[in-house]
Amino acid sequence: MIQPAIIDIEASGFGRGSYPIEIGYYLPDGRAYCTLIQPAPGWVHWDVAAESVHGIRRDLLLARGRPAVEVCRDLNRQLDGQFIYCDAWAYDYTWLNCLFEAADMVPTFHLKDLRELLGECEQTLWHATRAAVEVRLQLRRHRASGDARTLFETLIEARKRCAADWAS
Rank of each mutant, 00 (worst) to 15 (best):
L111G: 06
W95N: 08
D59G: 00
C86A: 06
C72K: 04
Y25S: 11
T150Q: 05
Y26R: 10
T94G: 09
T124W: 06
I2R: 04
I2D: 12
V44H: 15
P107I: 11
E10R: 01
E157A: 11
C86P: 03
T124H: 09
D29L: 12
M1L: 12
P39R: 00
N76G: 09
G42M: 07
V135H: 03
E120S: 11
W89N: 05
Q3I: 05
A88Y: 06
C34R: 14
I37W: 06
E70P: 00
Q123F: 00
Y33I: 03
G119V: 00
R130L: 03
G119S: 06
F109W: 10
D87L: 00
R140M: 08
A49C: 08
L75A: 08
G119C: 01
R136P: 02
K112S: 09
E122M: 02
L61K: 02
Q3K: 14
L111P: 04
L60M: 07
F100T: 13
A163M: 09
I156V: 15
W43N: 01
R149P: 01
I156M: 15
L36V: 01
F100P: 02
P67E: 09
A132N: 09
S168E: 12
Q82D: 06
Q78E: 13
G15Q: 08
F109T: 07
G146N: 11
R130S: 06
L99V: 06
S12A: 15
F152M: 04
R16A: 02
S52T: 14
G17T: 08
Y85S: 04
G119Y: 06
T108D: 09
G55E: 12
V71D: 10
A63M: 10
A50R: 05
I156P: 01
C86W: 12
D8R: 05
Q82I: 06
G55S: 13
P4R: 10
T150R: 15
F14Y: 11
C121P: 03
D8L: 09
V106F: 12
T129H: 00
E101N: 15
V135E: 07
A164W: 10
M1F: 07
G17W: 04
E51S: 03
Y85T: 06
E120R: 14
Y85Q: 07
D147H: 13
S18I: 04
I7S: 07
H45Y: 11
E122K: 04
E134W: 02
L114R: 08
V106K: 13
Q123M: 12
C86K: 09
D59H: 14
D147P: 03
L96Y: 05
L79R: 02
Y85H: 07
V44D: 14
A5T: 15
Y26M: 10
R64E: 15
M1R: 09
E10Q: 15
Q123I: 13
A164G: 01
H110G: 05
H45C: 00
T35H: 03
C34F: 04
Q138E: 11
D59W: 15
I21E: 02
R16Q: 11
S168T: 11
L27D: 02
R136I: 10
P107G: 04
D147C: 11
W95Y: 11
G81P: 00
L96R: 10
G17Q: 10
W46H: 00
S168Q: 05
T124K: 11
D113Y: 02
L137K: 07
N97W: 12
Q38C: 12
E153G: 01
A88Q: 13
E101H: 13
Y85M: 12
L151G: 01
Q123R: 15
K112G: 07
T150H: 01
L151M: 10
A167K: 14
